[in-house]
């Protein structure tokens, strides 16, 4: 029973309410890093990892702030803690895989201002998820983000061989693609309700 609920939560965050395509979260990296398939996959994994960290942090912060009765500080604390967590991840990646560090480039520090990360913390608080539910939700959201990013990168790699009208070059064509992807993801809407 519990397993089924968690599974539904995961599917819901990944497919039905995909962070990028249904909530417009994390659009900046979505438009920025999605030009190449390889970097898109890595970016997605980095984001997923930071989301998991953020989920745990948010859970701990909520407990702590709840104890001292200072819930109004939650937004500020999330930001600071998540930013430090990203800093740690950045140092870790630079040490262990310089090539990956180079690929991700400017986008790794920018993960901090990735709305998707903060959104995981905020949604989790607002929907009153426990630690396990929060982790599953964060993982699902990260996987959904990766999926959208990789799909987009695949399409954009193909798009380079196509003659795009002058006026739609760059952002406009990417937005149209995102719109089509988003419509396609609407097809998953039936899954979430079934449970």
């Amino acid at each position: 029973m519990i397993d089924a609920e968690l599974w539904a939560l995961f599917l819901n965050a990944t497919l039905v309410n995909n962070f990028v395509l249904a909530y417009f979260l994390g659009i900046c990296p979505f438009l920025g890093v999605s030009a190449r398939l390889e970097s898109a996959g890595r970016m997605g994994l980095a984001v997923t990892f930071v989301m998991l960290v953020a989920s745990i942090c948010a859970f701990a912060i909520n407990r702590l702030l709840g104890m001292i009765g200072a819930e109004y500080l939650s937004l500020i604390s999330y930001i600071v803690v998540i930013a430090s967590a990203v800093q740690l991840v950045e140092m870790f990646v630079r040490k262990t895989s310089p090539a990956l560090f180079k690929t991700l480039g400017i986008f790794l520090p920018l993960i901090t201002t990735n709305c998707a990360i903060l959104a995981v913390a905020l949604f989790q608080t607002r929907r009153e998820y426990g630690l396990l539910e929060g982790l599953v939700f964060a993982f699902g959201a990260g996987m959904g983000f990766t999926l959208a990013l990789v799909l987009m990168a695949g399409i954009r790699e193909r798009l380079r061989l196509v003659d795009v009208p002058d006026m739609a070059q760059g952002m406009a064509i990417t937005l149209v693609l995102a719109g089509i992807l988003s419509l396609a993801f609407m097809g998953f809407a039936g899954i979430g309700v079934a449970t």
Binding site: L21, A22, Y23, F24, M167, A168, M171, A172, I173, L175, V176, A178, G179, I180, S182, L183, M186
Partner: peptide, 19 residues
């Protein structure tokens, strides 16, 4: 009203602005 419509509208606005 769907998210997809948001993307399409923004794309149309960007193209219109460019022209």
């Amino acid at each position: 009203q769907l998210p997809g419509g948001g993307f399409f509208t923004l794309a149309a606005l960007v193209i219109g602005f460019y022209l």
